[in-house]
Each structure stands twice: as C-alpha cells, then as structure tokens.
C-alpha cells in the first residue's frame, strides 16, 4: 500500500464509542420508542444495525432500521465517468411524522448528508432528522454538522479516513492513510459496492 497508514482506533475503542453514542441517544430522547435508524450505504448500514442492537439492550426496544442509497441524489453525477453501482433503498416503515436518526461512518465534505436529506425528503416528511457519524474528519463544504460524533479526527484534506467493519471488511478498526488506499480511491469515483 502506498504512503503511511496509522491505526487510530481498534475494535475495543470502537465498541466503547458506539456504546457511548447509544447512551447519548437515550439520554437525549429518554426512550427509543418511535425512533428509527437509517444507515447510509455502505458502512452506515452495519453501524445503524449495531446501534439498534445496543439500544435494545439498554431500553428493551429495538428501533426500526432502514437503508438509504444516496447515489441517485449525488451532486457530482455529471462529473463521474462511471455512474456508481446502485443498491436498493429499503425503508420498511412510514416516514411521515417519523423521528429519524441518520447513521454514516465518516463525515467529510457534508455532501453525502445533503444528498441523504434530499433522498429522505422524497420518501416522506419526517418530524425531524438527526445525524450520527462515527468519525468527523472536518473539511466541510456545506453547512452540515452531526448531532452525535464518535470521534473527531483532525486530518489534512489529502488524507483518507477508512472505517473498517467486521461485517464488511472482516475487522473493526479506523485507519488514517496519508494516501488513499485502493478501496477508498474507488470510493471517490463512487464505484464502491
């Protein structure tokens, strides 16, 4: 792999961080009844499922979960040579009047979240939407902030933050790359699966 890579979080610290976010959600909302977690493809999806499991242990209710593919709402489609591979959006509950917690792995420019908000609004009219991100790496290009942040990682713009998850990557860890690894390079092209 070209360039230097540093592991900034391991499986234990990731588990503690996710548990803290679950407690914060409960602290703010008292109960998880009526909450729905929507994961943004790809890595927001397992994160949302884990959070739902943790909330179930803490509160005795498992919030509903959904999956959002934002590719049809991207603002850079006319700049991308290969249109990203589409996956299904699966929101198995009524969005009108619902309380939505969006979940994603990394908050960077904020454009993905902008697209996710547009995508959700097309599906219905939630009462409100909050945002959980596992890593906030800065460098926002639109005025968007997260309500719950796992870890703030100061980065240079050229660096790449990679959140790896057991369910998809075989291990839980957060890596900071000086140069983007090949998977993240293809993610910039929107070609990730």
């Amino acid at each position: 792999m070209p360039g230097k890579s540093v592991r900034v979080m391991d499986a234990d610290s990731m588990a503690r961080t996710l548990s803290r976010i679950a407690h914060e959600l409960l602290e703010r909302h008292k109960t998880v009844e009526g909450l729905a977690l929507v994961g943004i493809r790809s890595r927001g999806v397992p994160l949302a499922n884990r959070l739902a499991g943790l909330l179930n242990e803490l509160d005795g209710h498992r919030p509903e979960t959904g999956v959002l593919d934002i590719n049809l709402y991207r603002d850079d489609l006319s700049l991308i040579a290969d249109h990203p591979i589409l996956r299904r959006t699966e929101i198995p509950f009524e969005l009108d009047g619902s309380k939505i917690v969006l979940v994603d792995d990394v908050l960077f420019t904020g454009r993905t979240i902008r697209a996710a908000l547009d995508g959700l609004m097309d599906l219905g009219r939630p009462a409100w939407i909050q945002l959980v991100v596992f890593v906030d790496r800065g460098h926002r290009e639109v005025p968007i902030r997260a309500d719950y942040v796992g870890k703030n990682i100061p980065t240079a713009r050229t660096q790449e933050v990679e959140v790896r998850l057991e369910e998809m990557d075989g291990a839980d860890e957060v890596l900071l790359h000086d140069e983007p690894p090949s998977r993240s390079a293809s993610r910039e092209q929107g070609r990730q699966r």
Partner: peptide, 26 residues
C-alpha cells in the same frame, strides 16, 4: 447483469409515492 441489477433499484423508485429522482437533471 449490471443493467438488471441496476433496474432493481429503479423498481423501488417506482413503488414510492413520489416516483421521481433528480439523477439526470439537465
């Protein structure tokens, strides 16, 4: 296969109340 897989996602758009996405705007 790529075309048929991609069509699965668009079939979902056809089941929505608002059956429109901004993808090919302009």
């Amino acid at each position: 296969r790529l075309i048929l897989d991609t069509a699965e996602s668009f079939a979902e758009v056809g089941t929505r109340e608002i059956k429109k996405v901004p993808t090919l705007r302009g």
